[in-house]
Write a protein that binds this DNA or RNA. Structure first.
Length: 505
RNA sequence: GGCGGGAUAGCCAAGGGGCAAGGCAAGGCUCUGCAAAAGCCUUAUACGUGGGUUCGAGUCCCACUCCCGCCUCCA
């Protein structure tokens, strides 16, 4: 790869259209995504943007761009303060605890770390400087110890969300706060209240409002006109709308961001998954039951802008599909290893054009690479990208099933298929395990001693069963298989001997 | 009330003027001691409803119904 001809198109929320992606700086891409407010455990709704933007940066990197990725932590916030007061410990301790938890959860999901994780509490001077400048330029005003942004001072207000200030006046939920000139004005700086963390400022002790941090920190780390700003669809208004207003008023130079990317929300029973509705599932709970690669598959099996319904039925169906991909990936590796045990992983050499040319599979491999890239280039169409992997898997299985001799061009093409699966399924999407031999237990994160013992016991039983089968004592053999089945262990007989795995559902 | 998105097979889900991807489920067959896995085949003349534009409409336009999100903290 490495070819970055202008073929990548992305949906820009600002224009609601697919646009050709051309970064600000040749060869480099800057991305800022809104991270979390760390006051509680992270759930699947937080994992979706994390995994999606993880794939975005991996894909951009694979296309030869150098990516700089920044994701913030809003570590100064009402909910953090509330929890801190409830638990009687400092607010920053709460936020540090849950920020660490978030990072651990995302690590477990295979999300690569951002280059920087700026926190509000560590960027107060940058924020104060920005607020002061906005006051100076007449875009903000001081009211008591608070500072508000004056939305009417910014003509473009509403351009991201399509809201109009006049219409919002009529809205039932907008109220004029005390000290606000316009109901849509929002706080840049809040005066300190007793018991809350606060910092000194030209307007007295206080803390930053919600929206200003992202403007201040993204501009600080990525500069003006950076490439991609991401986040959940629920942040479009008011958060990102306000970011644009502040930032462009501050710099006097639009656009603040070149491309706005928003991911759809995770729902359960068609309702948004959220802490307040109590219909969420934590990443930790999910990881106890499912491998990280499967969770990523689940998240990427729907286009990023669409809602993703999370429920038992969808989960089971997705699980079966993912398993087929996984089993195919494992079988492919096994077969190649028996034929050429010394071949190192991912030769890379076997993917060149013309390699294994006389094998039909070589054509499928080439097609898969093309189709995959076309899908990803078309606004990150991961569902279609995944479907190309299914098609490749079917071709590979078909070949293996045909009994064709694994030699010459056929073997070369098979190795190319393996390399491509690794490149796309493992390294790019992260939906397949890097180690194809990894066994997927019911609790992959569980005690290793127990799993080691379990494994030995299962293998012992299978040896006993093999003896029975050799004696053609199928009653005994089936009894063992049924008993294992009752424990959720699937036994499969293959020409190379029995194989087992935990049933996934 | 304002703004935005959506309705595609039994289920999930791409596509978005010219023969309807992929997955799950279901049925048949092959392989197998039997299974499982895998393969092959079958499964959308009705793409929410009614109009319209067009040689041609899931795809564009209008109206309507229902669903979701945002407008309060939210990924």
């Amino acid at each position: 790869m490495g070819d970055r001809s202008e073929s990548l198109r992305v949906t820009n929320t600002l224009t609601r259209q697919k646009e050709v992606f051309i970064p600000r700086d040749e060869g480099r891409v800057s991305i800022y995504t809104c991270g979390v407010t760390p006051y509680d455990e992270s759930h699947l709704g937080h994992a979706r943007p994390a995994v999606f933007f993880d794939v975005v940066r991996r894909y951009l990197a694979s296309r030869g761009w150098q990516v700089r990725y920044v994701q913030n932590f809003t570590d100064v916030d009402d909910k953090i303060i509330a929890r801190a007061q409830r638990e009687g410990i400092p607010a920053l301790e709460i936020s540090r605890r849950y920020a660490d938890e978030y990072l651990a959860a995302m690590d477990a999901l295979g999300v690569r770390r951002a280059d920087v994780y700026p926190k509000v509490s560590e960027h107060i001077p940058v924020i104060i400087e920005m607020v002061a400048r906005l006051v100076e330029k007449g875009h903000a005003y001081v009211s008591g110890g608070d500072v508000y942004f004056a939305v009417e001072s910014f003509p473009g207000y509403g351009k991201l969300s399509g809201q109009r200030l006049e219409e919002m006046m009529a809205g039932a939920r907008v109220e004029v706060g005390e000290g606000k000139r316009h109901p849509a004005d929002f706080a840049l700086w809040k005066a300190a209240r007793p018991g809350e963390p606060s910092w000194q400022s030209p307007w007295g002790p206080g803390r930053p409002g919600w929206h200003i941090e992202c403007s201040a920190m993204s501009l600080h780390y990525l500069g003006n006109h950076f490439d991609i700003h991401g986040g959940g669809l629920d942040l479009v208004f008011p958060h990102h709308e306000n970011e644009i207003a502040q930032s462009e008023a501050y710099t006097g130079d639009a656009p603040f961001v070149r491309y706005w990317l928003h991911n759809g929300l995770v729902t359960t029973r068609a309702e948004k998954m959220s802490k307040s509705l109590g219909n969420f599932i934590t990443v930790r709970a999910l990881l106890k039951e499912y491998p990280a690669e499967f969770i990523r598959y689940l998240l990427l099996s729907v286009h990023y802008r669409s809602p993703l319904e999370f429920g038992a039925d969808a989960l089971a169906a997705a699980r079966r599909g993912w398993e087929r991909l996984l089993l195919g990936w494992q079988e492919l590796n096994r077969r190649l290893e028996t034929v050429m045990p010394s071949l190192p992983q991912a030769t890379g050499a076997a993917t060149g054009p013309g390699i294994g040319a006389t094998s039909p599979l070589a054509g499928v491999v080439r097609q898969t690479r093309e189709n995959f890239r076309r899908a990803m280039d078309d606004d990150w169409n991961t569902p279609v990208a995944i479907s190309t992997l299914f098609e490749l898997t079917r071709s590979v299985n078909s070949l293996l099933h045909s009994g064709a001799e694994l030699a010459g061009d056929t073997l070369t093409a098979l190795a190319a298929a393996r390399d491509l699966m690794r490149e796309l399924g493992v390294e790019l999407l992260g939906i397949l395990p890097a180690d194809p031999h990894r066994a997927f237990g019911a609790s992959a994160a569980g005690g290793t001693d127990d799993t080691a013992i379990t494994t030995r016991l299962i293998e012992l039983l299978l040896e006993v069963r093999e003896d029975a089968r050799r004696r053609r004592d199928f009653v005994q053999a089936d009894r063992i298989r049924d008993a294992l089945g009752a424990c959720g262990i699937v036994v499969e007989d293959t020409p190379a001997g029995p194989r087992w795995r935990f049933r996934g559902d």
